[in-house]
Amino acid sequence: MSFQILGTGSYVPPRAVTNDELSEFLDTSDEWITRRIGVKQRYICTTESTADLALEAAARAMENAGVEPQELDMILCATISGDDATPALACMVQKRLGASCPAMDINSACSAFIFMLDTAAGFFARKKVKKMLVVGAERMSRLLDWSDRSTCVIFGDGAGAAVLGEGEGYLASRLLTKGGDDVIRCPQTNGASPFCQRPQPHPFVFMNGQETYKFAVQSICKDLKDVIGEAGFTPQQIDHVVLHQANLRIIQAAKKRLNIPEEKYWTNIQKYGNTSSASIPIVLDEMNRQGRLKRGQILAMCAFGGGLSSGACILQW
């Protein structure tokens, strides 16, 4: 027993920020950002909290699935940019949704949606749950140094959610952690005590772009090949490839190395930027609502990011 996806939802704040708008206060340009990252615009929170984004995406997924809050047996949220250390984002989604089930957060940065699906599969396998809500929600804009043109142009805010029900749709998975803070890091600096003698780090997202790119491309290629093989498929039998929308160049480099036709990849980083753990469920929701996903189709999904971490899975829609 694993699960199948019953419905999806997504939400981004209404404020769109274009590359041209960023170039008004940063030494950058639409041409540079487009060539280097593939992003044309991103949505950025103004008054919205991470919980606001998560709740709206969750409510849309619940409506899409036809599931009521009281039917949920567990809520998982993935975030690195939650509003509070406690309560967990999932707890606030539970309260505001009107559910009464256990709820907790998972942190594996941009890979977290796959880690969350794998965690969910365990609850289904143990028959502890019949319906689960999983949400990836990020307010990345609060973790960025908006004077650093190499990082702040990459990310966007948003949330994506899926409602899971009993089924046999989760066919194979692979999780990987290569622990270290030298390639990607976002220090948490709140609450230094008067006794603390540790230096205060720069409290924003840091990325070594070249090493991140290399880890990402290598992870996509290896992890996807592994899970496709583990599920007993060939690359040609995959209907859709859903990758974490980190950087269009990463996706293009992976495409060159994987023997999967171009038209099977879905990209939307152009419109949203990198929304970390929300990126895969936002893609899924776009595809679902545009009628691209048919029951029985095979999806290969892969995400990678801070940790370093990567995760891949094969899902039958």
Binding site: R35, R36, G209, Q210, E211, Y213, K214, V217, Q218, R249, A253
Partner: peptide
């Protein structure tokens, strides 16, 4: 050639 091209060629 930008830094991502470099890493692509190095890979």
């Amino acid at each position: 050639i930008d830094s991502l091209d470099v890493v692509e060629v190095v890979m």
